[in-house]
Design a protein around this nucleic acid. Structure first.
Length: 586
RNA sequence: CGGGGCGUAGCGCAGUUUGGUUUAGCGCGCUUGCUUUGGGAGCAAGAGGUCGGAGGUUCAAAUCCUCUCGCCCCGACCA
């Protein structure tokens, strides 16, 4: 493609409303333009990248036996009423009426439609399993769209749905898709982790998310330096097996510590009140008592509409994970305010402790169970208690995992070091089970002749989001750096001076030669100054840039900036084709 | 939805507090000509705006008032 003819509007200035690199660069490099909030036009070079990603997705989905279909964007309300999601989905579902006044919606996802197809056409276990996918536009009326294509209201998604006679069969397809997704992301040249997740409004049981690692990710995750363990921060389990010293871990020190804690269980010292005037934070308290935060216990009081007040005990060096608390209590809780407890004189926020909390149920993190003689608040302004011990001094209703995993903790699986990172969710796969087949009465006859609901899986993959995630992960300062696999072109050729006839002739010949040999080349033949060409090339991010300039007149060599391998080369023009093929084939 | 901010030329902005000296200006971009040509060139001449929209106050409104639409940021929420 000749750049002089290509619709590729690059901008020099950073758009004022864009904050993250992928958003800024997608605008500056002419990939997208905004139409309205969370809605974008995708311009030629952006669409080229999307098509590359789609091609990779199709290859991998077809490989596991999935078949591509296309369902409509617009969907009738009746189907959504059948599953109850017409009501549940809220404002995120874009609703509209047709000319006859019938309720319709723009599909944010397609479980209802696919189930409708299958219940009409599939009636026997002999026809199963079946796995259908589409690559299509979705619309979700997000509360707050942001970051360009990373969180748009309209976006391109690959969604797949599978139908099975048995859970075992679903497991098989689920694993196939998991592998396919891994392959897709690897083929796109990106670094990622798979984490367990919650299912949200889609519903179902087992589910995993695929996280592209990037500093600007919206999800906080941990992953292991040694094994494949990775988890979202608000869900990550803390390794209790290590606490019980049942697993072989390298961290001798930690094992020793745990053993000591376990063995010392019997030496309980006498409880003692100590004045701690004006001291409220864990940090202040540990300094005042000359102890570490690990020796203290935090008591956190929460309140939920359904459950009322509950107290949670956690080790002083940890944070209460409200998400885990909510899941545990099956309620939405909040930390209590002074206002809420003003009629309870035995509660002093800042000096909370488990001893004498009257009728408030106490839950404790697993770690508390093996701690002894710890420090806690005295429920009395300006006082704390020393040598507090569970069982003897207070009753714990239940022990569980209530804290955030911390980077100092070891991997829950193998005990190695952890890394804390951020991720961009590009894929989410679910074992739905029979949620939709039951509510929509989608049944088949099994071997025994019994009518059963289909067992379903669904698998989403954000195409436009992957594009942004790729920019986020691979960009370098003000430059996009496309992984060569999804780069809009394989080679970016700059003709420095189109006015020099000889130079121009060489460039034109090279361009034609590369085209003939099926190299996707972006040829900057514009009659503008060289500086603009260099800067545009860096911005656009094709990872191989070749310069046709004085050097080629003297030595027949083309200068190559190779961002795939981060090097510069001088290549004889006869060897150029070979060079591009070799370097881009990774 | 709560809190904050912004709408003036294609883009980025000044002018709004204190209505009139502006024929609404500046930078970038755009057009034409000449020169220049290895990291965002120079000179010259041009084109381009019903100041987001509606209504009101006034002799006079980009500027004051009312309503409205759009967009952005922070938060909760969510793939």
């Amino acid at each position: 493609m000749r750049l002089s003819k290509y619709f590729l509007p690059t901008t020099r200035k950073v758009p004022s409303d864009a904050k993250v690199p992928s958003h800024i660069l997608s605008i500056r490099a002419g990939l997208i333009r905004q139409v309205s909030r969370g809605v974008y036009n995708i311009l030629p070079i952006g669409y080229k990248v999307i098509k590359k990603i789609e091609t990779i997705i199709r290859e991998e989905m077809d490989k596991i036996g999935a078949q591509e279909i296309l369902m409509p964007v617009i969907q009738p309300a009746e189907l959504w009423q059948e599953t109850g999601r017409w009501g549940e989905y809220g404002f995120e579902l874009m609703r509209l009426k047709d000319r006859l006044g019938r309720d319709m919606c723009l599909g944010p996802t397609h479980e209802e439609l696919i189930t409708e197809i299958i219940r009409k056409e599939v009636h026997s276990y002999k026809q199963l399993p079946i796995n259908l996918y589409q690559i299509q536009v979705k619309f979700r009326d997000e509360i707050r769209p942001r970051f360009g294509l990373l969180r748009g209201r309209e976006f391109i998604m690959k969604d797949a749905y599978s139908f099975h006679a048995t859970w075992e069969d679903l497991d098989k397809t689920y694993e196939d898709v998991k592998k396919a997704y891994s392959n897709i992301i690897e083929k796109c040249g990106l670094d990622y982790r798979i984490v367990e997740a919650e299912s949200g409004i889609i519903g179902g049981k087992v589910n995993h998310e695929f996280m592209i690692l990037a500093e600007t990710g919206e999800e906080e995750i941990f992953y292991c330096t040694n094994c494949d363990f990775a988890a979202k921060k608000d869900l990550a389990q803390i390794n209790r097996a290590i606490k019980e010293a049942k697993v072989n871990v390298k961290d001798e020190e930690l094992i020793e510590e745990i053993k000591t804690e376990l063995e010392n269980k019997n030496e309980l010292n006498e409880i003692k009140e100590v004045a701690t005037p004006g001291i409220k934070t864990i940090q202040e308290l540990s300094e005042f008592l000359n102890l570490t935060p690990r020796d203290l216990v935090k008591t956190v009081l929460v309140y939920g509409e359904k459950i009322g007040f509950s107290a949670f005990l956690i080790r002083g060096n940890r944070e209460l994970n409200i998400n885990k608390v909510n899941n545990f209590l099956k309620d939405e809780v909040q930390l209590v305010s002074e206002e809420q407890v003003k009629d309870k004189p035995y509660i002093k926020l800042g000096f909370l402790g488990p001893v004498v909390l009257k009728d408030i149920p106490i839950y404790a993190d697993y770690e508390i169970e093996i701690m002894k003689n710890f420090v806690a608040g005295a429920n009395k302004e300006g006082y704390h208690l020393l040598n507090v011990n569970p069982k003897r001094d207070f009753k714990v209703k239940q022990y569980n995992d209530f804290t955030f995993l911390q980077v100092e903790d070891k991997c829950s699986k193998c005990g190695s070091e952890l890394i804390e990172s951020k991720g961009i969710e590009v894929g989410h796969i679910f074992q739905l089970g029979t949620k939709y087949s039951e509510s929509m009465k989608a049944y088949f006859l099994n071997k025994e002749g019994n009518q059963k609901p289909f067992i379903m899986g669904c698998y989403g993959f954000g195409v436009t989001r992957l594009l942004s995630a790729a920019i986020e992960q691979k960009h370098y300062e003000n430059q996009i750096t496309w992984p060569i696999q999804i780069s809009p072109f394989k080679f970016h050729m700059i003709l420095i001076n189109p006015h020099k006839e000889k130079l121009k002739q060489i460039a034109e010949e090279l361009y034609q030669y590369l085209l003939k040999n099926n190299i996707e080349v972006l040829y900057d033949d514009r009659e503008i100054s060289a500086g603009i060409k260099f800067n545009d090339a860096d911005l656009i991010g094709i990872p191989m840039i070749g310069v046709v300039g004085n050097e080629i007149l003297k030595t027949d060599k083309i200068e190559i900036k190779n961002k795939i391998k981060n090097k510069k080369d001088l290549i004889l023009k006869e060897d150029l084709l070979d060079y591009i093929t070799t370097e881009s084939n990774i």
